[in-house]
Amino acid sequence: MNDLKQKIEMAFDSIDINIPEDNRMIINISKDGVISILSYLKNAGYEHLALISCVDLINENEFELVYIVSAYMKRDDEFHDREKQNIIIKTRISRKKTRFMTVINIFENAEPYEREIYELFGINFQGHPRLKPLFLEIEYEMPPFRKNFDTRKFVDDMFGNIPEIEGH
């Protein structure tokens, strides 16, 4: 783990890496560096994109995008340390300018994740081939996973007003 940390620190400047526990590495990087660090990690053998997530840090007025990558096995039936490691890459974008780069060119299975984040958080991934709604049938006034979308209020407004069926 530490080898990797050193290697990454050599390759990238202005990068913040910490290892909070065994087999977990957190990389904080500015949003311009995400593509290059992801392709670097992929070339280093971390080919498995486990997850792309998004956290709405409403107090700091930012979105935090989280990419978690890990490695497949080197050999079919030997277990190495590398597979245990999960690398969490975090980057922040402004809540006002919700635009970011797609990483489909590096990880093919990023496609639905980005589509989901586009739909639920309203982040526009540029270069994504089909940014169409994935889950939702109707349009909400605000992407529903944002912290300032009050789902209980929305439910009251929307479903509370549906009248009962009268008569027989």
Binding site: L136, V155, M158, E164
Partner: peptide, 16 residues
């Protein structure tokens, strides 16, 4: 609505 009484994407009373 059951346990999804506060979910934005499920309807609450089907008989409506």
């Amino acid at each position: 609505g059951g346990m999804y009484w506060d979910s934005y994407n499920t309807i609450k009373h089907l008989d409506k």
